[in-house]
Write a protein that binds this DNA or RNA. Structure first.
Lengths: 333, 333
DNA sequence: CTGTTAGCGCATTCAA
DNA sequence: TTGAATGCGCTAACAG
C-alpha cells in the first residue's frame, strides 16, 4: 500500500480511503490511484484490515456433514441473504475429526469470523467457549446443543409435532406395526422426531416395538443397515418412518434387495423433502422443512446479534408440511 | 494478552511463547499462565497472529455447488489430509452470485487463506488476479479454467478416455442410438466427457444425433428436462449417457414418468459413482472417479505450492473405472 | 480533500 | 529462561 502510494504520489491514507470510501477522494486522485492499483494488481491486505477493524465480514456455517442434501437447501437461503448483506459465507464441516473442536473454538474465539451458524451440528465447541467472557454471535439452525449455551437463538420447525404428523399419516393409512429409524445414538437432530413418533403411537393406543426403533446415523448406509436388521426380525413392520430422507434411500435399496415392494409390501415415510425425494422410485412421502427459509431467517438473526441487538425471541419456529407421494399406501387388508 | 500477562505476573512475550512454543517456558511459569488462560477463557487473537506471521493455516475449497454428492467424497479426502497437516478447511460455494468473483479474488489476493483448491469451479476469479505480481497457491481438482492461468497444477482423471469407456460399454451392449446429456452450455466439467462420447461413436462408425446431445446443467432438474425433451422426439434412443450421476437421477424419474423401464426399454449410464448410484432403482452403471484420492492428492499438491516448492508435474492423472450395475443391458433384439 | 501521527495484538529480534 | 523494544499493514483520529 505504501508502494502504491508512492507510485501514485499520494499518502497511504489516501490509498486507504480509496478502498474504503472512494467518494471522499477527489476524482482525479481517485483515478490515478485506481490506475496504479490496476497496474500493480494490488489488493489491500484484508488481514491487516480485519486486524485493525476487528471484524472480517466472514460468517462460518458449521455443518455436521455437507453430504446431506437438506443442508444444501438451507445453504441456498443463507447464500441469498449473505449476498444481500455483503457477507462472505464459508462452510466448515464439523465432526469430521475430534481435534476440530479446539480448532473451531479457537477460530471463533479469536474472531476470525464475525459469527457462526450451527447447522445440525453437535456441540462442535470445546469447553473454553463457556469460560470466555464474550460469547460470540452464534445462531442455531435446526438442532444443535452446545453444553452450557443452551439458550442460543435458534430457528427450526417443531420437530415434535412434525414427527407426530408423520406417524399419524401412517396410522391413518391403517398401519400399526411401524418401525422408526433415527440418527446415531443420542442424536440431537432426530431426538424430537422420534419423540413425536412415540407420542403419536401412544395416542393411538399402540405400543412401540423397541426392536424396531433403530439408529441409522442419518446416512444412506446407516439407513440400509437399520432396515436390514429390522427386516430380518420376525413379524415385519408394515411401515417405516425414516427420520431423514437419506436413510429412506438406504431403506429403499434394502427393501428392493429383500424382494419387497414399496408401498405394496411396506410403506416408507421420510423427513426433509430433499431434492431426491421427488425422483426416488417410487417418489417419497416425507415431511417438508422450509429449508431456505430456515437459512434466511437464521442469517438475519445472526446479523442482528452481530450488530449487538438484543434478541427478543430466541426461538423461531417455522412451519413444516406433510408431502404425500407414492411411498405410503393404505395397509393391505 | 497483556491482561493475561499482568494477572499471571509475567510479560506478554512469555504468554506469547506459552502458546507458540510451550517448551521454552519453565513448567512453573507455564502452569501459572495456563491457569490464568483457563480462567479468563482467553484465546490469542489469531487475526493479529496471522497478520504478524503472514499465514492463516486456512485453505479454502471453492466448489461450484456443494449439492453435488461427488464433491462430498472429494471433501472427505481433503479433510483427511488437512487434519494430518493441521490445516483448517473452509468451503466456499462459487457461482452462486456473480458478485462473488470479486469477493473471492479479493479474498485470496489479500491472503486470508494460505491457498485455494478449485473443485469443478468455473473461473471464480476476476481479472485482477492475472495482474497480481504473485499468483497465490491454487490447485485444480477435476476441472476448472481460470483464464490467463491455464497452467495451474491439477489432479483429475482422464475425462476423454472415461467418456469413451462409458460410451464403448453401451456400444458393446449393441446400442447405437445413444443420447448424451452434458452440463450447461460450455461446461468445462463435462466438455471432455462429451468429446469422449463423440470419439467413441466415431470410432464405431456411428453418427451422433445432435438433437440427442443436450445440456443438463449437472443437476437432477437439468437431467429431467433434457431427458423429457429427448423422449419427446421421434425415434427414441435406446441408451442415454448422463455425464454425471445427478442427471442420471433426473433421467430415471422422467423415464418412469413416461412409463418406460430401465434397462428394459432404455439403458442409462452415469458418471461419478456417487453414493446414490448404488441405491438407485435399478442400481446405476457409471464411471467411478477416485474422489477421495483426488482430494488427497490435490491438497498435498497445494501444500507443496504453499511451501514454495516447484511443481514438476503440474497435471496428475488418476485412474477411473467402469462400474457395471443394472441400469444398462444388451439392446433388445 | 489530504497528510501526519498513533496504535490495533502479536511474534520476533536482542539483551539480560 | 525471561523481558523490553520494534514493526507487521492498515485505519482512525486529528490537523492542515
Amino acid at each position: 500500500m505504501k508502494e502504491v502510494a508512492e507510485v501514485a504520489g499520494v499518502s497511504v491514507t489516501t490509498v486507504s480511503r480509496y478502498f474504503n470510501d472512494p467518494d471522499s477522494v477527489k476524482s482525479a486522485t481517485r483515478s490515478k490511484v485506481a490506475e496504479v492499483v490496476q497496474e500493480m494488481g494490488f489488493a489491500p491486505n484484508r488481514i491487516a484490515r480485519n486486524f485493525r477493524t476487528g471484524s472480517t465480514g466472514i460468517i462460518v456455517v458449521v455443518v455436521s456433514g455437507i453430504g446431506d442434501p437438506f443442508f444444501t437447501d438451507v445453504m441456498e437461503g443463507i447464500n441469498r441473504v449473505a449476498s444481500e448483506l455483503s457477507y462472505m459465507i464459508l462452510i466448515k464441516e464439523a465432526d469430521a475429526h475430534p481435534v476440530a473442536k479446539d480448532e473451531l473454538t479457537n477460530f471463533i474465539l479469536s474472531k476470525q469470523s464475525d459469527g457462526i451458524i450451527l447447522l445440525g451440528a453437535r456441540s462442535p465447541f470445546s469447553d473454553s467457549l463457556k469460560n470466555s467472557r464474550v460469547i460470540p454471535p452464534i445462531v442455531i439452525c435446526c438442532e444443535a446443543v452446545v453444553p452450557g449455551l443452551e439458550s442460543l437463538p435458534a430457528v427450526r420447525i417443531d420437530n415434535l409435532a412434525a414427527g407426530k404428523d408423520a406417524t399419524k399419516h401412517l396410522l391413518q393409512l391403517g398401519h400399526q406395526k411401524i418401525a422408526c429409524i433415527g440418527g446415531q445414538e443420542g442424536s440431537i437432530l432426530t431426538r424430537e422426531r422420534e419423540m413425536g413418533f412415540r407420542e403419536a403411537m401412544k395416542e393411538a393406543g399402540l405400543k412401540v416395538n423397541e426392536a424396531w426403533v433403530a439408529p441409522g446415523s442419518l446416512s444412506i448406509e446407516g439407513g440400509r443397515k437399520a432396515t436390514r436388521r429390522i427386516l430380518k426380525m420376525g413379524g415385519k413392520p408394515t411401515a417405516i418412518f425414516c427420520t431423514n430422507d437419506e436413510m429412506a434411500l438406504g431403506a429403499y435399496a434394502e427393501i428392493a434387495a429383500a424382494g419387497l415392494r414399496i408401498p405394496d409390501d411396506i410403506s416408507i415415510m421420510g423427513y426433509d423433502n430433499t431434492r431426491y425425494a421427488e425422483v426416488m422410485t417410487p417418489p417419497l412421502t416425507t415431511i417438508a422443512q422450509p429449508a431456505q427459509e430456515i437459512g434466511e431467517h437464521g442469517l438475519y438473526l445472526l446479523c442482528s446479534l452481530i450488530q449487538g441487538q438484543q434478541i427478543t425471541n430466541p426461538l423461531e419456529i417455522v412451519s413444516h408440511k406433510l408431502v404425500v407421494r407414492d411411498s405410503t399406501a393404505p395397509l393391505r387388508g
